[in-house]
Simulated assay, not measured.
Amino acid sequence: MSFLPLRKIFLFLFFTTALASCVTKKKFDDLSARKSKLDLDIAACEKAMARVQAERKSLAAELAELQSTNQKMVKDSTETGVALRKTRKLYAELNGTYDKLIKNHERLMSNSASESTRLSADLARREAELLTSKNQIDKLSADLKTREERLNEMERVLAEKDKAVDNLRNKVSNALLGFKSNDLTVNVKNGKVYVSLSEQLLFKSGSTKVDPKGQEALQKLAQALRDQQEVNVLVEGHTDDVPVSKGTMGMKDNWDLSVLRATEITRILTSAGLTPERVTPSGRSKYVPVAQNTSADQRSLNRRTEIILTPKLDELFQILEKN
């Protein structure tokens, strides 16, 4: 999708209005500034669409991994089916032997008492083997049915989980659509939705107090998550490798800075309506960078807060834990 037609419309309206009204230079400057802002907003939308496409690719990789688990269960079921067919074959062979023994028994009834006793014992043993085989067949049939039911249930839960993650990402992306792409991104990874917010959106350097623009983004995120009761929220604070200045608000190092920032964001989210039981703050300091700390631009990427949204998968885990 492209926003080029929208850009052309804005430019057309802008220049038509400017030429038709013969505006003063001040008004013309004001309109030029508004045009620049619209250009930035359009660029942000284009970048957001590119991220969504990347997220879908990540989700497809996760689906492939889960499908591999399905294939293993299908293989197990296939092996059970092979065992079932072998047992049925044995059952048929034993049935044939049983019929032959009956005929032999009738033919040899006139033989000696010792021979008759031996044949009776053999017949009883064969009957016991037949009963055992029948019980094995019944057990294998029941086990095969149970495995098939588990496979069907897992496929249903996986489809629901994929749909839930996709809907959650779309809802969060729509709620945060008005923010710049270099300040805020929404990605899907390992079945979770990652909302990454830059330091420049949330905090001043070395501060743990969230700026008004950052508070607005967090409140919109909380509003989008209020009715998502099956989603847990993990708030991770991240820093670059530059040590905290000595005596900065009582902080000793980047651990303190990342934890305090995550805790402050947690307070804003819960104050905006999320239940505290769903939100967990954590600090990762400098140890989970997304870029090399070799330049100012790369360090700015590492100074971020990641809000990780994880749908509850209790139903899927219960299926996997069944014997």
Rank of each mutant, 00 (worst) to 15 (best):
F3C: 07
L4G: 02
K8N: 11
K8M: 11
I9L: 14
L11S: 12
F12V: 08
C22D: 09
C22W: 08
T24N: 06
A33C: 08
K37Q: 15
L38D: 02
A44P: 00
A48D: 06
M49K: 10
R56P: 03
K57I: 15
Q67S: 10
N70K: 04
Q71P: 05
V74C: 06
K75S: 07
G81Q: 15
G81A: 15
G81I: 13
R85H: 05
Y91C: 03
A92C: 08
N95K: 14
G96V: 13
K103P: 01
E106P: 02
L108Q: 15
R118I: 09
L123I: 10
E127R: 14
S133Q: 07
K134L: 10
D138M: 13
D138I: 13
L140K: 10
L140D: 03
A142P: 01
L144Q: 04
K145T: 07
E148N: 07
L151Y: 08
R156Y: 12
V157G: 00
K161I: 04
A164D: 08
D166N: 03
V172H: 01
G178C: 04
G178N: 10
K189R: 12
N190E: 12
K192I: 06
Y194C: 03
V195Y: 02
S196R: 06
S196W: 00
L197S: 00
L202C: 15
G206F: 09
G206Y: 07
T208Y: 00
K209G: 00
D211H: 10
D211G: 10
A224F: 09
A224H: 04
L225A: 12
Q229S: 15
V235P: 02
E236I: 05
M249Q: 09
M249I: 03
G250Q: 05
M251K: 05
K252T: 04
D253C: 04
D256G: 04
D256P: 03
S258A: 12
L260N: 06
R261K: 08
T263E: 12
R267K: 08
I268K: 01
T270P: 10
S271C: 04
A272H: 04
P276G: 01
R278P: 01
A291F: 07
S295F: 09
A296L: 08
L301I: 05
R303P: 06
I307S: 10
D314F: 09
